[in-house]
Design a protein around this nucleic acid. Structure first.
Lengths: 202, 202
DNA sequence: CAATCCAGCGTACAACTGTACACTTAAGCT
DNA sequence: AGCTTAAGTGTACAGTTGTACGCTGGATTG
């Protein structure tokens, strides 16, 4: 039942996924990646690719999902840090920037496919980002007495600012990156404070 | 001196540019566009392309520049509207959303190449967006007594939120779009108000 | 044990790509 | 009028792409 065969299949499936992720970089996008390239890198015949995915698009969606998992982990980590540390804003920015630095290519994938040519890709990425917004909305509602809608609007603004800062950070050197981080933190303070002051609560 | 020849050359150059812009859509990106496709659409032989551009990249940069001009016009229009109308925030969002609705493909081009695989493309788009930030910074400094740095941070936040809302609007129906617009306006109020309250001035 | 299944392979093909090269032909210049 | 310049053409080629098809050999099943 262990399935020595199924095991091998899963192994090459992972090889394909890894090969695809490996080839992602600042100069090489998933969209400009050919089936044959992936197969070559994964060490299989081009036609063997079809035993695992119907399409490059199907592989791409898998990648986005895998990236989503990594992001979900990130969120959990951020929440733990906040519980211990206190500062929501600083911790969130720190955690996110750390993710971008450590997984630039995964982040690039999301960034690009968010505005890519495939509807399904765009939807998949939007779904992942919405997880962020929703979790943050919940958090904000627990902390203060904002209405659902109000909290969501604020959460959306916060996520947008952080996500965008991550995107911009990709092309910056460490010094500029640090400055960007500080500006972002300030922007988050502004919007948070503004929301708290405008005060249209539940 | 008029140059009947130079005139004709300029004409087919424009034909190439128009063909490229025409082919941009939700399903077709500039990156996935071939030299031959453009030539075909422009009604010239593939090899004639080289009489005008060395590269598809060179054509792409030209497109980004042209888009920049359209955006610059937009800014001028927005400023005029503000002078007459008053509300900075509402007018800005209205103007920008109008642009996205009217030139979705130009906006898509900028959006995609902002995180594309060509450094030069990314730089070109960043330059265009920086124009927005700088102009807004100047405006904010004139209106209030923020320091340059403080005003820039605020401007950056505002531009990020608006630009991102534009991106999101692309895939939405009119009703959702209206809701997004309202949320964005609220977010801009938050951040503006927050900046005014935190008050670290010149 | 024999029969079946199926992941992976190799070959093959038609479609498309960028671009080198030699050409035509009309405009521009002297 | 004659010579030159250069925009646009057509042919050609080597490289790459996705994928259809038939095969193989080891794992799985009965």
């Amino acid at each position: 039942m262990a399935g020595a065969r199924a095991l091998q299949k899963e192994k090459t499936r992972q090889a394909i996924i890894d090969a695809a992720l490996m080839h992602l970089s600042a100069e090489h996008s998933f969209a400009s990646m050919s089936l044959r390239e992936v197969a070559r890198e994964a060490g299989i015949a081009p036609t063997s690719f079809y035993r695992h995915f119907n399409d490059m698009e199907e592989l791409g969606l898998t990648l986005v999902d895998e990236s989503g998992l990594t992001l979900r982990e990130l969120m959990r980590k951020a929440r733990q840090r906040i519980e211990k540390n206190g500062s929501v804003i600083n911790t969130s920015v720190e955690t996110f920037m750390e993710f971008v630095e450590r997984n630039p290519n995964i982040f690039r994938l999301l960034l690009r496919e968010r505005s890519g040519t495939s509807v399904r890709f765009r939807e998949a990425v939007a779904r992942e980002i919405n997880h962020f917004k929703d979790e943050l909305t919940e958090y904000l509602m627990a902390e203060s007495d904002y209405s659902q809608e109000y909290a969501f609007t604020l959460a959306e603004g916060l996520v947008t600012l952080v996500f965008n800062a991550g995107a911009e950070a990709l092309d910056l050197n460490p010094i500029e990156r640090e400055k960007l981080k500080e500006r972002t933190i300030l922007q988050l303070r502004f919007i948070t404070f503004g929301a708290a002051s405008t005060k249209e609560k539940a």
